[in-house]
């Protein structure tokens, strides 16, 4: 495999390997009794995996600021929605 092909593959392949490790970790940790922390741990790992896909596969950091802003808008409004929603349900 020549240098240019290697360059194309290396970062995505390392990212994929990290995703596989995280998948194995989240699957194994799901069987460890941690009470309410089970959900928090599995969601944190899911967020890390989604972040890897976003940053490397979707090339967020190589993108122009306009795209990064558009990409950030969704998660920001979801955060606001969940904050308002669970500030009600979690405090009843």
């Amino acid at each position: 495999m020549d240098e240019r092909r290697r360059e194309i593959w290396i970062r995505p392949l390392l990212t994929w390997a990290a995703l596989c490790v995280l998948l194995a970790a989240t699957c194994a940790l799901a069987y460890v009794p941690m009470g309410r922390a089970n959900l928090a741990v599995s969601l944190a790992i899911a967020a890390a995996k989604a972040g890897l896909v976003g940053v490397v596969f979707m090339r967020l950091f190589e993108n122009n600021p306009l795209n990064r802003l558009a990409a950030a808008a969704g998660p920001i409004w979801i955060f606001v929605m969940f904050l308002l929603l669970f500030s009600d349900y979690a405090t009843r």
Binding site: I8, P12, L13, T15, W16, L19, C20, K49, F57
Partner: peptide
């Protein structure tokens, strides 16, 4: 995840 790798590459 593997299909994402394929289309990213």
């Amino acid at each position: 995840m593997t299909s994402s790798l394929a289309i990213a590459v």
